[in-house]
Design a protein around this nucleic acid. Structure first.
Length: 439
DNA sequence: AGTGATGATTTGCA
DNA sequence: TGCAAATCATCACT
């Protein structure tokens, strides 16, 4: 980038654009700070020189022809009073410079700039490249559930962030380069001018400071717009969380099976949630959401869900029957010495009122295998009967270590039950989801 | 476009 | 912190 030439960018011009050829520059007024001998190329000087007219300092009506500007400057430089005059001027300037500096140099770090810097750093736009805002993307992904579907959006987010990062760095580099060039340019100018007018190094320093401040304000604009771009990208990405996508049929089936087989206590434990999440390829929080929604919606409209409940109950019962048949076979070969563990053996099947209770009794941890073996069909029939009979609420005997001890109260809400954790099936680990389901 | 279903979010409570 | 309830926002079907 060269100064004095228009740059074909959309950015605000770094310096005031010089008038184009269609609008000729107004003739510079003659000032005391006319360029020194090194600036013979200046239009003012050349024009004045070519015109040969009276110079800026020429006394009107002088009889003798006025000398050319370089000649006059030379004469001025060689004047015997010049050093003295120069030092006085330097002194004055030094004093005024100090007062100006005193007024301007208190420059605390801009909090807004710091905020922008921090944000860009946090988003991975500035600073060392480590996967381009991986932390932010990871956080966003975590918030969005982090399922495999999100990986596409995730990579999309990162790609866009990388793009922003690249643009930011390119622009920043341009600005820095421009700043350096301009500073050098101004310093050279001032150094040259310092031959004819008093310019102290401190003044040059101050000028450089001003230039740097100007450029840093431009950089701030760049940072600001970059931040805005990141925010937009981020909000778009995070908004994707709200983009609802129905769970797969299989996942819904699994969740429903669990729900209806635990109708007395549809509060899966953390372990159960994790297991369900794994099976359904969703997150634990999605499982929680699903159960939250399901409980509330079921409770609000039991009638509507009756059919669904029957469907899943029947399904579970059939699977249970198969499981029982298998258990019977097992029990025929192995002696049926399964102990009655805990209190589960005590619950009253006809009063149990939901699949969970029935399945609990069918599942092998609380029954005498031979008894159940003889009653497979009647058990299934009872299940069906019970399911059809009730809305699924019961008086609270269900539950094993997988579920929070809740039950439905008289108001139609599930409330705490007193079932001891000892009903946990000895044949299945506490983390198992299917301690009492057909899964 | 209207509507119900459904996943996600927010709010308030214990 | 987990839950209920209300609400939002989108999907899927008509």
């Amino acid at each position: 980038m060269r100064f004095g030439t228009a740059t074909p960018t959309s950015r605000p011009p770094l310096i005031r654009p010089s008038p184009g050829p269609l609008r000729p520059a107004p003739r510079p007024l003659p000032t005391a700070e006319a360029p020194g001998p090194g600036h013979g190329q200046s239009p003012a000087v050349t024009r004045a020189g070519r015109r040969g007219g009276p110079g800026p300092g020429a006394a009107p009506g002088a009889a003798e022809p006025s000398p050319t500007l370089p000649a006059r400057k030379h004469a001025l430089n060689c004047h015997r009073m010049k050093p003295a005059l120069f030092s006085v001027l330097c002194e004055i300037k030094e004093k005024t410079g100090l007062s100006i500096r005193g007024a301007q140099e208190e420059d605390p770090p801009d909090p807004q700039l710091m905020r922008l810097d921090n944000m860009l750093l946090a988003e991975g736009v500035s600073g060392p490249e480590k996967g381009g805002g991986s932390a932010a993307a990871a956080a966003a992904a975590a918030a969005s559930g982090g399922s495999s579907d999100n990986s596409i959006e995730h990579s999309d987010y990162r790609a866009k962030l990388t793009q922003i990062r690249q643009i930011y760095h390119t622009e920043l580099e341009k600005y820095e380069q421009a700043c350096n060039e301009f500073t050098t340019h101004v310093m050279n100018l001032l150094r040259e001018q310092s031959r004819t007018r008093p310019i102290s190094p401190k003044e040059i320093e101050r000028m450089v400071g001003i230039i740097h401040r100007k450029f840093s304000s431009i950089q701030m604009q760049l940072k600001q717009s970059t931040c805005e771009a990141v925010m937009i990208l981020r909000s778009r990405f995070l908004d994707a969380r709200r983009k609802r996508r129905n769970f797969s049929k299989q996942a819904t089936e699994i969740l429903n099976e669990y729900f209806y087989s635990h109708l007395s206590n549809p509060y899966p434990s953390e372990e159960a949630k994790e297991e369900l999440a794994k099976k359904c390829s969703i997150t634990v929080s999605q499982v929680s959401n699903w159960f939250g929604n399901k409980r509330i919606r079921y409770k609000k409209n039991i009638g509507k869900f009756q059919e669904e409940a029957n469907l899943y109950a029947a399904k579970t019962a059939v699977t249970a029957a198969h499981a029982v048949a298998a258990a019977v076979q097992n029990n025929q070969t192995n002696s049926p010495t399964t102990p009655n563990s805990g209190s589960s053996g005590s619950f009253n099947l006809p009063n149990s009122g939901d699949m969970f209770m029935n399945m609990q009794s069918l599942n092998g941890d609380s029954y005498q295998g031979s008894q159940v073996g003889a009653n497979v069909q009647s058990q299934v029939d009872t299940l069906r009967h019970v399911i059809n009979q009730t809305g699924g609420y019961n008086d609270g005997l269900g539950g094993n270590s997988l579920y929070s001890p809740h039950n439905l109260n008289a108001n139609g809400g599930w409330q705490d039950a007193t079932t001891p954790s000892s009903v946990t099936s000895p044949t299945e680990g506490p983390g198992s989801v299917h301690s009492d389901t057909s899964n």
